[in-house]
């Protein structure tokens, strides 16, 4: 599991030959305070949207690079799957969106004192994007600005 072999051949070839962007040098920011005092934001690329939000557009050839802000108060069960990829089994996230957008779990962990607090807004992206430079140039910078504005300490990224 968690292996290229789970994909059909054409996806395996694509993933093996894709020009992955290498982070070099790797940035490193030690946590400056205890987890119990930190504010956390969740950023998921599972393509989940809120009940009153537009789904990610599946007809965009390179993939929809839009952002959906989702309140950290959301009950995960109200989220809808709008991920365009057919390369993975959607059954799990449709049954329990916490599987890739763990709003309920993180709220429980904050209430238990394991982490200080949750940012008031989380972010949802749709990870099937074949032009990642569009993400790095146009999608991520405004998210980073909002994280700075919100004084977030920890960003938790979850794929699908």
């Amino acid at each position: 599991m968690g292996d290229l072999q789970e994909f059909p051949l054409r996806y395996r070839l694509y993933l093996r030959t894709y020009r992955w962007q290498r982070i070099d040098p790797v940035p490193w920011s030690p946590l400056k305070k205890p987890l119990q005092d930190c504010r956390l934001v969740l950023i998921s690329s599972a393509g989940l949207v809120g009940a009153d939000q537009e789904p990610f557009e599946k007809s965009i050839r390179i993939g929809d690079t839009g952002i959906r802000e989702i309140s950290s108060d959301v009950h995960a069960a109200t989220l809808r799957d709008a991920h365009r990829s057919k390369a993975f089994d959607h059954t799990g996230i449709r049954r329990d969106p916490n599987l890739a957008f763990p709003a309920d779990r993180l709220r429980e962990m904050a209430e238990a004192g394991f982490i200080g607090s949750l940012n008031h807004r989380f972010f949802s992206l749709m990870g099937s994007v074949t032009a990642p430079d569009q993400l790095t140039r146009h999608t991520i910078p405004p998210i980073v600005s909002r994280l700075v504005e919100d004084q977030v300490d920890i960003a938790l990224l979850i794929p699908v």
């Binding site: 599991m1 968690g2 789970e6 994909f7 599972a46 390369a87 993975f88 089994d89 959607h90 059954t91 799990g92 996230i93 049954r95 329990d96 916490n98 599987l99 890739a100 763990p102 779990r105 979850i158 794929p159 699908v160």
Partner: peptide
């Protein structure tokens, strides 16, 4: 060590 679609293990 989970398959795609199941990053946090199980629903």
């Amino acid at each position: 060590p989970f398959r795609h679609g199941y990053p946090l293990d199980a629903p």
